[in-house]
Amino acid sequence: MTITATEEQRVPARSAPDRQRTPRASFGRILDAEWTKIRTVRSTTWTLSLLFVVSVGLTGLICWGVAGDLAAGGTDESPGAFATWGLMFGQIAALVLGVIVASAEYSSGMIRTTLAASPRRWSVLLAKAFALGGLLLVLGTATSVASFLTGNFFLGQEGVGLALDDPGVLRTLFGGGLFLAVLGLFGLGLGMLMRHTAGAVTVGIALIFVLGNLVGLVPGALGEWLTKLMPGNAGGSIAVVESFNPDLLDPWVGFAVFSGETALLLLVAGVLFSRRDA
């Protein structure tokens, strides 16, 4: 590209200090900036598309596959366990998006620009959490509703469909959004803590998906409680009409536990963030 070098040296003269206009990097502005950041990179579009397509697609697929079996009574499972089944996989995208929102700042070095613009680090973290959480709440709810409608369509064809006023159905529709939003924040916390995309995604998947199943192998009551309290297990119940595992915490109790764990993670990440060199 050609750049006009010498004639471009005109820097607009500094306006005389205008004291009426006392600009402030207020929280609202930092939030606006963080929201602008999230919506202007393609990774956001990609992860959210994946979240939607995988969740809705897999739910449709499994419901289409098991509806006949369920109708014939060939399985002990209830239709409610399948109605949003795809979210189990789609949720990985929410976790990854949360991680990226934090870790991409470090992999690109942009964290320095971010903190030069808004040096109050707790405000930056909070703004990121609001922007990400809000986005995932809306798209997560849409995903959850679309998954349910798709899955339920196939279940309904075999006469095992659910009605909106069946127990847990409404809770599931909104719970999906809540769960995905908090899961994204969990990823944000991990990303902030580890400052490395691959590392944080690996740890996140291990904590949410792998360890959640493995701790069940610990014998006795300890194993039972660990299973109940692992973040993925505790939080996931709110996003399904009925859980495959009957020993998990009650959906809302579980969600409260998961939110608490996420808050704790963000708190630790925030303390380190505000202390560490950028």
Partner: peptide, 8 residues
């Protein structure tokens, strides 16, 4: 743009 927004 995001930088501008952050500082009004």
């Amino acid at each position: 743009l995001w930088m501008a927004k952050s500082n009004g």
